[in-house]
C-alpha cells in the first residue's frame, strides 16, 4: 500500500519510515478521512462505591494519535484501562456501554482477553520493565504468545529495539538487567515491549510524565513517529505535548462528581476553536 498523499494531518516528512523496520505505513488512511478503529458507545464505568466515568461516546480513528486531556481524577486513566480490559484486574469495577474494536465487542463474555491485549499494547505512566534482562523482557511475551523460533525471536527483538531507537544504545548489553537502564531508556524499552507483539493499537497513560525533560522529548519524538502505523490513544497532562503530537483530542472534565467527555474533535479545532466554554477555559490555562 502506498503512502496516501492527501494526508494533511501528518505531513509526509514526519512519516518518513527509513528508521523503521516494522514495515511501511499500512494502517493509515489519512487522518482527515477517518475510519473508526475503536468505537465507544455510551460507556460508563464505576468502582465499588463511586462512578468514575459516565456517558462517554467517541470514535478513535485508525492510524491517528488521539490525545485525552483534562484535569487529574476525571476518569481518563479508567477510560484507557477499559479499552484493553485492564479494568478486569480491579475488584468491583463495573462497565456499562459498548466498546467495539473493529466491530468486536471488547467487554463481551466470550472475548479472548489475552488475544485482545496482544492487539492492544499499553504503556504506563511509570516505566515498568520486568526485573529480567533486556532481551528477556522482549522475548518472554513473544514466547508466551507461541513464538519459539530463535531466529524469529532475535529478529523481532532487534526490530522492536531499533524502532524505539534503543538498539544502538543496548545492543552490547542485551543480557544485562533492564532495571539498570535510565528512566527514559526504560520507558522506551516498555514501548518496544509493546511493539514487539506487533499490536494495532497503543494505549499510553502519561508516558512522559515520570521522565526528565530530555528523555521526555526523546519519547515524544518516538510517539510522533508511530503516527500512521498504529492507532495511538494517549493520556497527557501536557497540553503543549498533546498539541504537538495529536491528530485528535478529547477533553474530559468532572461533572456531577463523575468524569465525562466534554468535547472531542480534531486537535487543531480543540485547541484553536473549542466549541465548549469549559474546553476553551482549560486549553487557555484558565481552569484545572
Amino acid at each position: 500500500m502506498t503512502v496516501i498523499e492527501k494526508n494533511v494531518c501528518c505531513t509526509p516528512s514526519e512519516m518518513s519510515s527509513e528508521a523503521f523496520t516494522l514495515g511501511p505505513l499500512q494502517l493509515g488512511p489519512p487522518c482527515c478521512d477517518p475510519e473508526p478503529h475503536i468505537q465507544i458507545k455510551n460507556l460508563s464505568l464505576s468502582y465499588a462505591d463511586k462512578t468514575a466515568l459516565s456517558g462517554v461516546s467517541l470514535d478513535i480513528y485508525r492510524g491517528c494519535i488521539t490525545a485525552l486531556i483534562g484535569p487529574s481524577g476525571c476518569g481518563k486513566t479508567s477510560f484507557l484501562s477499559s479499552l484493553n480490559r485492564l479494568t478486569d484486574m480491579i475488584a468491583g469495577c463495573k462497565i456499562k456501554g459498548e466498546i467495539l474494536v473493529d466491530s468486536v465487542n471488547v467487554h463481551a463474555a466470550n472475548t479472548d482477553v489475552q488475544a485482545l491485549r496482544r492487539r492492544i499494547g499499553m504503556i504506563f505512566q511509570k516505566p515498568n520493565p520486568f526485573p529480567l534482562s533486556i532481551r528477556r523482557n522482549l522475548e518472554m511475551p513473544l514466547k508466551e504468545h507461541g513464538i519459539r523460533d530463535r531466529y524469529v525471536l532475535s529478529h523481532r527483538v532487534e526490530k522492536a529495539l531499533t524502532d524505539v531507537g534503543l538498539w544502538d544504545e543496548v545492543k552490547d548489553r542485551l543480557d544485562s538487567p533492564a532495571l539498570a537502564l535510565s528512566g527514559g531508556q526504560q520507558q522506551r524499552l516498555c514501548i518496544a515491549r509493546a511493539l514487539v507483539l506487533e499490536p494495532e493499537i497503543l494505549l499510553m497513560d502519561e508516558p512522559c510524565s515520570a521522565l526528565d525533560p530530555l528523555s521526555s522529548a526523546v519519547v515524544e519524538d518516538l510517539i510522533k513517529s508511530l503516527r500512521g502505523r498504529y492507532t495511538v490513544v494517549i493520556v497527557t497532562h501536557n497540553l503543549a505535548q498533546a498539541r504537538r503530537i495529536a491528530n485528535y483530542a478529547g477533553f474530559f472534565w468532572m461533572q456531577e462528581r463523575t468524569g465525562t467527555l466534554i468535547e472531542f474533535g480534531r486537535c487543531q479545532q480543540i485547541f484553536e476553536a473549542p466549541a465548549h466554554q469549559l474546553t476553551a477555559a482549560y486549553v487557555s490555562g484558565a481552569r484545572g
Partner: peptide
C-alpha cells in the same frame, strides 16, 4: 476478576 480460560 477476569479468569481467562488458560488460567482455569
Amino acid at each position: 476478576m477476569s479468569r481467562s480460560r488458560t488460567d482455569q
